[in-house]
Design a protein around this nucleic acid. Structure first.
Lengths: 207, 207, 207, 207
DNA sequence: CATGAATGAGGGTTCATTCAT
DNA sequence: CATGAATGAACCCTCATTCAT
């Protein structure tokens, strides 16, 4: 509660002008986070980059954390849009191409803004109590478990909850590490091979 | 270069008392990091916990980062000890129990000091230029690739470099997520099931 | 002059709605002053409590100080109403019951709104140039001196100006301290004893 | 507790250099308080006046309040020195000259540093939980009650506790008002008359 | 006349680091 | 080599006030 008070936005920004201010602040936060890192990202710097006074910043966000949480939310929505579209595409597909499509979506999701993703992933845990990056991993888990349940007859007998954890987490690990530490395996040449391997990993595990 | 000057320890700590001071400082850093988090871990507090004056701290470490790097090094050595022992154990084993042993070692490695591991994982990337946590993942990759090469005949045809990346990274993802965000799947009851699944993941992928 | 411009209310609030707004602002200021203390009483908060926009607040009051001065004025009027009524009551009374009545009035005056009185007493001196709380003590002094003059024949020979200062100031000291720091001596049980003693103090001094 | 942490000094300042720093800070606080008033007295300004860095200030005092409390303490000690000396002087005196001496001491006490006294008196109540100005009024009350007890036979029958409250509080009110708002009655010419009247007030009340 | 978004000087405070002792 | 007092840049944040709408 006391904590939440410092994490939730302050106003709903009803007027058009203020909505623009809020958007500028969130965008500036993302940029500064990427450029300077979490610790060096000061509220004053963010306000400056947003072209907004520090006072306005604090009118909408009660703390630095609140800004970061807003960025996380925005990033989450962008990624989940990618994931949900893939899930929809996959509805009518046989399992093999379906899994490939989902793996590709996981990679795409990480590539929306990899540098930002990296910073957020590192600092999300601080922001306990906020809807952090794990929260939408939870959503991804749920979606993937539903996918497994729909295809259960085609799978070897598995605990779909545990299997979803294993699959989502390992794909997440692979893509995250690739994006953050191994840009070489994401080059246009190598990308297909990586997606193939990751697809193999999942399919062989499940079938 | 100028950067490295601020990351490497200052002296080699030849005398016994010096070594004790250095050890106390590294230990204190680890403790404060876990207790207070990275941002609240001040050098003054670390010196106090180590029972050493702030002046002495700066005689052995030129900066706060240098202290953290020393902690990372120590942690890395501890984990690699676990991993290397497993690698040795596995030398004469058939592939199936060997993989299981290695997966278990990965989990154990993360459990050496999970809270510290978490803090370091979050803040390691800041310390670019230092031998960060990824660095010893590289060592793990190499060791595992060698393991795969030794067993190549038993495997389906794979690029062992890529396969090592996929295996190590996904196991790392699973164990890291489990340790950091899902302590429930590491309870004594659930642990075996998780190790089983992860083993399945790897073996089915490779064979 | 320039100073006064920032202390006097801005408009005479001729229309009914304006008068209501002004009243709401003064009332809100008093409430916020009591609830949050002088330093935490921000104009934005006052406007909010008054149900008025911050812009409107500044249409009627040029500064925070002007608001506080208005509250002081209102408080002063309330107290002086009590004091004047007592003075009127006392006109036809013999000196002994008269003094008792006046002492009781002093206590009552302080009890109109003790918490507000306390805050105002603490911060009035800042507002130099404004008609502060001492100003109406001057009025009280004058009224009491007139009272003494009317009864001069019954008194021992005294400088009524000095005697008024001594009496009013000591009663003020007693009641103020009692209200602010010693609520115990104002309990229903103890109150009469205190008024008795204070009355004794004054009568013995004068007669 | 949490409050006290922000009011008590931080270190005991063992070394000579640091004691000088602490003394400079307390003195600077007193000066700034008098010169700029409580609200305008910023820690940065205090540090500057003390010729000390802001960091050093916070090494010894955790907050602005803690500084003010230290000033109060120092002021309290100075006043109580005056009061105690008068109490000692009075031990062998008959009651009439004794009371006069005590009244004079009350005035002297207020004149140690009247401007500072004024600021402290105004802002002491904020600092609840700290040994505030009232605390040593309590000491003064106790001393005066003891004085009354020693002379009980000479007095009309009174509750000495209540009588002490009435006497100390009214003398305090008179001297405080005189010092703060009526410097005219403290001029060399008028001072004796005021002390005479105040002495009369007390003696007539008691005898 | 009302609104409330925007402003920015300035406040309290921390902490990595230095250096006289 | 140890000590710890001292430093000050930088941080987060508030609030009285203005002004375009």
């Amino acid at each position: 509660m006391a904590r939440n008070a410092r994490i939730k936005p302050r106003k709903h920004a009803s007027q058009a002008r203020s909505r623009a201010t809020v958007a500028a602040l969130v965008e500036a936060t993302a940029r500064v986070l990427v450029r300077d890192g979490y610790d060096q990202a000061s509220t004053n710097r963010i306000a400056e980059v947003a072209g907004v006074s520090i006072g306005s910043l604090y009118q909408y966000f009660p703390s630095k954390e609140a800004l970061v949480v807003a960025v996380i939310e925005r990033h989450r929505r962008e990624i989940m849009r990618v994931v949900r579209r893939a899930m929809a595409d996959v509805e009518t597909l046989p399992i093999k191409p379906a899994v490939r499509r989902l793996v590709a979506a996981a990679v795409d999701g990480h590539r929306v803004n990899p540098q930002l993703h990296r910073v957020l992933a590192e600092h999300t845990p601080h922001l306990a109590g906020a809807p952090n990056l794990e929260a939408f991993n939870a959503e991804a888990h749920a979606l993937f478990q539903a996918f497994l349940d729909r295809h259960r007859e085609e799978l070897r007998p598995v605990d779909t909850a545990l299997a979803a954890f294993v699959c989502v987490t390992s794909i997440e690990g692979i893509t995250h590490t690739a994006v953050v530490h191994r840009p070489d395996v994401l080059s246009d040449d190598a990308l297909d091979a990586l997606v193939d391997e990751a697809t193999q990993l999942v399919l062989r595990y499940l079938l």
